[in-house]
Design a protein around this nucleic acid. Structure first.
Lengths: 354, 354
DNA sequence: TTTGCCCTTGGTAGCGTTAACATCGCATCC
DNA sequence: GGATGCGATGTTAACGCTACCAAGGGCAAA
């Protein structure tokens, strides 16, 4: 590799710049800038010429210059606690992708609990963060939200529907999703359907339960509190919950767990009892984390578009931050994305016991 | 929020800049720049004064300006295939953190298989990527590596030790780790130790097996090929492998699976056979993914510092890219990080059968 | 004492882009 | 017909930082 010391200045790398494109298209750099920023006031013919030049030269805008000139850089902190790994990785993917598109710096911090979360937020605010992204269970911690309101930092939560002054949220409709899943199980022919609840400190928990009850009521099935047991979203809590349900004298023919971890635990417990799935017991989960397809049989579940959710969350956060910066009222929008019912191999009509 | 239209120019945000620090410390901006870049030629007393000013003002360098001025921006593509979610999230965390520190843009792409991976690489090269980060199994695909060599793009692999012209790697010593784990099992008193292999197309597979054999040989235990069964790193393959081992007339008292997914499957299979863990059977895994602590009992395993590995990988990649850019020979370093033996609840001395 | 060199610091000129304002031509209106 | 306005484009001056070169000062060698 020859040295290039004879070059006049620092330039070694020489990518195509906006001026090159401008020269090629016989316009000013400003016009090129307008084209790449989708500014409306450029004549179509000019726009076409510029685009052609961009393509010919293989021009790629320089991010650094862009965000320097437009002072558009945004710093967003993402806090996470519950490292349900697949949830986390899906979120990270979305966040990374979105950050790449805009000029956003993301700082990801794990915190152990609510108190730690508050400490992290204080630190971040001190370093001048513009916004914060929260996922459950932190997104449901009142103290955390109160602190956020106090500091005035913009915030978006994922997976928990909120509607407050400076907190927007991106989530699915947990109620409708749980109802749909329960309806599916009823349609298979089940009447005794067990339900494993999630942690009481998360907003999704009562919503999913309500969806289950609604479907039952609509189908004319009496609610039996014996069939509804506590869980904490963890595998281990699912083990105990499933054990409880399977020990019932008239045991359920189907179990709907509030998340996949507990559904997986139910599958394991059933196997230990030599209860075949799905022949003797239908097991359904929620979230469609990778665990749902890791174990065998693969679990019928509700898919949350987590990557898309985190992308939407970052986008929303940026919009709010920009709005505040330019002195506008922050938009008070929350987004509800569509979930998807995913049928796999863990459900079947009842009848194994006969 | 009052509008600020009376301001002379575009400035709304007014963060502390390098000039503010310079004024505060009564030096030139250049000297401040030297301090924050650890340039050696600054007198200690000056350095201290500048650092004090930085602290007082809460100065944070502007990334965009920095990378614009130094033309240092680097684009790195990260390809992943095997979405063992916890592996992925750990990697992403490391990558994000490292990217934040330096001026590196990361593009993360999932690809389904080898062919798809090659397509992705070609695309990225076309858009002017500077380097590529590969994890298994893509990191073990010869065709992919050949393509990389052909295009001359810098590359670092994670989890697979490589030593080739333009490919460095960051990994742990799989051989030593597997040997250590096997030694641990032997020390517990086991003599019949089952082993579940990984996918044949990954380099780690033979290395882990070799570690197992070495420990056996050192302890004077004959190698019994009956105890070594095939797996493919997936939960489902682990189910079959465990079934095979547990069906043996003289079945093993311990099983060492080449990763946690298969160890978890072994636990599930054992439970189905009413074999208690760890009383009747010791099960050990490898990788320390979140699955290891999700299930019950939690699995004794080998911890790979994946987040640190991906950080090191990005760092290495950047160094190589900068070296090439400035016309130097690319450094041909690979890094081996330390693994950690993690004892949990899935192992015990033999004796349950007596 | 002078010369030369190194150590430390400062000045200048960009890096590639965009905000803000200026300009130009042309159609519209009274 | 000249004022008015608007749509399309150009000009200028940053954005905050660092590469490069120059310069001052101290010290050792001549």
């Amino acid at each position: 590799m020859a040295s290039k010391r004879q070059l006049p200045a620092r330039k070694q790398h020489a990518r195509v710049t906006i001026s090159d494109v401008a020269r090629e298209a016989r316009v000013s750099p400003m016009t090129v800038s307008r084209v790449i920023n989708d500014d409306a006031r450029v004549r179509q013919s000019t726009r076409d010429a510029v685009n052609a030049a961009i393509r010919d030269l293989g021009y790629l805008p320089n991010k650094a210059a862009r965000s320097l000139a437009s002072a558009s850089q945004v710093q967003i902190g993402m806090l996470y606690d519950n490292p349900s790994s697949s949830y986390l990785s899906a979120m990270l993917l979305g966040v990374l992708e979105q950050a790449r598109r805009s000029d956003t710096q993301i700082v990801v911090v794990e915190c152990e609990n609510e108190a730690d979360g508050m400490r992290c937020i204080r630190n971040m605010v001190k370093t001048g963060i513009d916004g914060i992204l929260l996922s459950p269970p932190l997104a449901d911690a009142e103290a955390v939200l109160a602190l956020l309101k106090e500091t005035g930092v913009q915030c978006v939560t994922i997976g928990t529907r909120r509607d407050e002054p400076n907190v927007s949220s991106v989530a699915i409709d947990d109620f409708a999703a749980a109802r749909l899943m329960t309806e599916h199980i009823i349609r298979l022919g089940h009447r005794r359907i067990g339900f494993i609840k999630g942690s009481p400190d998360q907003l999704a928990t009562p919503q999913r339960l309500a969806g289950y009850r609604e479907a039952l009521a609509n189908a004319g099935i009496d609610y039996d509190s014996e069939l509804v047991v506590d869980g904490r979203f963890s595998y281990r809590s699912g083990l105990a919950a499933a054990e409880e349900l399977l020990a019932l004298p008239d045991r359920p023919t189907a179990i709907f767990a509030s998340n996949d971890d507990m559904a997986a635990a139910t599958v394991a417990t059933a196997h230990r009892h030599h209860v075949d799935i799905p022949r003797d017991l239908t097991v359904c989960g929620f979230d469609d984390t990778l665990l749902a397809t890791t174990i065998w049989p693969e679990i019928t579940t509700i898919h949350q578009p987590i990557t898309a959710m985190s992308q939407a969350a970052i986008d929303l956060l940026e919009k709010r931050i920009r709005a505040v910066r330019s002195g506008q009222e922050e938009p008070r929008t929350s987004i509800t994305l569509d979930f998807r019912f995913v049928q796999r191999a863990s459900d079947a009509p009842p009848g194994g016991y006969r």
